[in-house]
Simulated assay, not measured.
Amino acid sequence: MDLKLERKNALILASSQGLGKAIAAELVKEGANVMLASRDEQKLAAVQKELSPLGAGKVGYVVADITNAEAIKSLVSQTALEFGGIDILINNAGGPPGGSFTDFNDEDWQQSFELNLLSFIRTIRESLPHLKKQGGKIVNIASSSIKEPIPGLILSNTFRTAIVGLSKTLASELAPDKILINTVGPGRIATDRIQHLDKMNADKLGVTQEKITEQSIGKIPLGRYGEPEEFAKFVTFLVSGANTYLTGQSYLVDGGLVKSI
């Protein structure tokens, strides 16, 4: 299948590690130009060096704090200037801290709102003039909590679900401009985030992290955590030329973990 990604220009947030990095790698392999973005320049430079030999496209990076409106404006403008446009936007952000409702104050809620929802809104808004030129693709990375709330992750449950409402509404508004937008939620994918959550739960229950991981895997029909590359391949399809009719949808890449219909 020809994914028609050669010379397409992609901006990927939170792409110095984890799922963002894995998506960047797949797009580079398909010949796309990829702009990496995160707050850690050292990691970004290392990832740029690692990914550049994988394909014919350019790999650049911009250091950006996506909770800052001006930083997002600069990130989008630099991407469009360097690549000559933006065809693909992948919104992504690190997960907010775990805890219950009584653990968080107004500042905690505000910080999570700015990181996990407002950053997506701002980046879409800034990217639209570029995406509208020839049509484009947007994927918002969320969580399996968009289908089933995860205990102990109330901040994530709240704002990840809001992303679905945003995406579903924009699917109709952006369709006349030939822009497709979808939401993808990872299940238990083997990233640093999942390692952190397993350790948090282990500490809370007074058991080993290995025990928590074993219990989590036992709930997954496929019997293992997913690999970042598996998640990335699905996102790559959604933003590719092979996807011409899927928009406004929410998908899980979770090995069958979530039982909701």
Rank of each mutant, 00 (worst) to 15 (best):
D87K: 06
A93W: 07
E148D: 06
V258M: 09
K49Q: 14
G241A: 13
K132V: 06
G60Y: 02
L115S: 13
F120M: 10
L54G: 00
D65Q: 07
N105F: 14
T236V: 08
T123F: 03
N243V: 13
Y245F: 15
G223K: 06
A175E: 14
A24F: 00
I86D: 03
N92I: 09
A64L: 01
V34M: 01
A232M: 06
L75G: 05
N243R: 12
P221A: 04
K137Y: 04
V235W: 10
Y225V: 07
I154N: 12
K49G: 08
S145T: 08
A202R: 05
K211R: 13
L117C: 03
L197A: 12
A32I: 02
S172Y: 15
K259V: 10
L170I: 06
S250T: 15
E41V: 05
I154G: 09
A202P: 09
N182Q: 10
G165M: 04
K133Q: 15
L5D: 11
I12K: 00
A202W: 07
S38D: 03
K133A: 14
G241N: 10
G95M: 14
G226H: 06
R193Q: 12
K4G: 09
G136N: 03
P53W: 00
F237P: 11
K147D: 10
H130C: 04
T191H: 07
V184D: 12
A142L: 01
G135Q: 02
R193D: 09
T79C: 13
L197K: 09
L117T: 02
N9A: 06
A142I: 01
G94K: 04
